[in-house]
Design a protein around this nucleic acid. Sequence first.
DNA 1: AAATGATTAAAACAACTGTTTAAAACAAGT
DNA 2: ACTTGTTTTAAACAGTTGTTTTAATCATTT
Lengths: 218, 218
Amino acid sequence: MDSVREKILDSAGRVFAERGYKSATIRQICQAAEANVAAVNYYFGDKQQLYLETVKQAHRRLSTQFPLPPWAQDASPESKLKGFIRAMLARMIGGKATPWEQQLMLREVLHPTSACRELVEEYFRPQLELLLSIISELLPSDTAAHRRRQAAFSIIGQCLFYRIAGDIVDMMAAADDEHHFTIEQLADHITQFSLAAISNTSPFDDRDNNARQSTSIA
Amino acid sequence: MDSVREKILDSAGRVFAERGYKSATIRQICQAAEANVAAVNYYFGDKQQLYLETVKQAHRRLSTQFPLPPWAQDASPESKLKGFIRAMLARMIGGKATPWEQQLMLREVLHPTSACRELVEEYFRPQLELLLSIISELLPSDTAAHRRRQAAFSIIGQCLFYRIAGDIVDMMAAADDEHHFTIEQLADHITQFSLAAISNTSPFDDRDNNARQSTSIA
DNA sequence: AAATGATTAAAACAACTGTTTAAAACAAGT
DNA sequence: ACTTGTTTTAAACAGTTGTTTTAATCATTT
C-alpha cells in the first residue's frame, strides 16, 4: 500500500527535514523514493505544495505516534509534570536519531513558513494548554495568567535546549560525564528543577508591570 | 576604510545569517556589497572560505561588542546571576531586529560546521564557565559537577527559548499580554525561577546514576 | 483484441549556481 | 610616458536547479 505518492511524501519528509526547503532538491527526493523527477509535479503540482503536504503529514504522524499523555486526572500534579516532561524529551531527542517529523517541526518553529499557523493551533497550543493545566495545579489559584505561561515556557525551554544545542553540549561535555544525558536523567533533573522553582514561587512577590531596574536583584 | 574586502565580509554576514550557507548566493552577497562577483574569489578564494571568515568575524565582533560582564567579585551571587541572564537575553533578542552575528552563531549551534569547534572553545565555553562559577556560589560545595552543569543548561535553555521560539510565542500569546515580554521582565522571571529552583535543591537527593523509573515522581 | 485513461519514463527547457578567464582600469614608481 | 603590480570588470564556463514536454507503459473496460 505504499504507493508512489506516499513514498515520495515519506522521502520528502526526510530530505526536507535534513536539508531544509531550499537546499533539498526534487531529484534527491525522487531518487530516495525510487521515482521519476516528474512524479513530484504529477502528484503534487510543484515543490512548494509538496512541502506543505509534507509538513501536514508530519503533524498527523506525530499526533498519532505521540498522543498527548492521558493520565490526566488521578495522578498527582508532580507525577503528571514529570510524565509530561519525559514525553516531551522523548519526542525531541528520543531514539538518538531524531525522527524527521520532529526535525521538520523544529524548522518551522525557527523559520515559520505559511505552513506554521496551522501547526501552532493544532499541535503546539494543545500541548501548551495541557502543561498549563498541570502547572495551575501546582501554583496558588490567584497566580496571574502570564506568570503561569512564563513558568510553562521555562519548562519547555529547558527541554528544547537539549534538542537545539545537543551537538554543542556534546562538544562541551566531551570526555567528561557523557552518561548523565539519558532521557530519564534529564527528565529527573528538569522536573526537580522546575518543581523546586514553582513550589518556591512566592505569589505575593509579583513585580508585575513596570519592573524597576533600581529595585534590582531577586 | 571600508574596503571592498570588508564590505563583502559584512554583506556576507547578513546574507549567510538570513539564508544559510547553501541558500545564500555569491551574487546576492556581491550585489549587497556593490562589488563584482569575481571579488569573492579574488579576496577569499571560494564561498567556503568566505563563510569561515564571516563566522570568525562574527565571533570577534560579539566578543568586543558584548564582552563578558565584569562585575565578577563584589556583588552577591544573586545579582551576578541576574546580570548574566539579562546580558544573555540582551545579546539574543536585543534590539528586536537581532544582529546577524548572533543569527550566524545560532545557525552554527543548530547545524555545526567546521567553523564550530573554534566557536565553542573561544565563545561558548567561557560563558558557560562564568555561569558555572556563579552557580557554584549558590549551591552546596559538595554538589556534583554534572548537577551544576545541568543547572547551567536549565538557565541557558530558558533564555535560548525566547530566541528560538520567539515567533511562535508571539503567535500563541497573540492579543493577550504582549507587554510581558520585555527583556527586563524576562530576566526578572528567569532569575526568580532559577534562584528558587537552585536554593530549593536538596543536595542529599542525588538520584545520580541508574535512575529507577519505578521510583517515579519527583 | 482494441480502446481508454492513468501512470511512468527520458529528455529537454530556461534559469540559476559557483567559479574562471581574459581583458580593462587603476595606482605608483621609475 | 612607460612599466609594473594590483584591483575591477564583463563575459563565459560547466554543473545544478525546478519544471515541462512528449512519448512510452501499464491497468481496466469494452
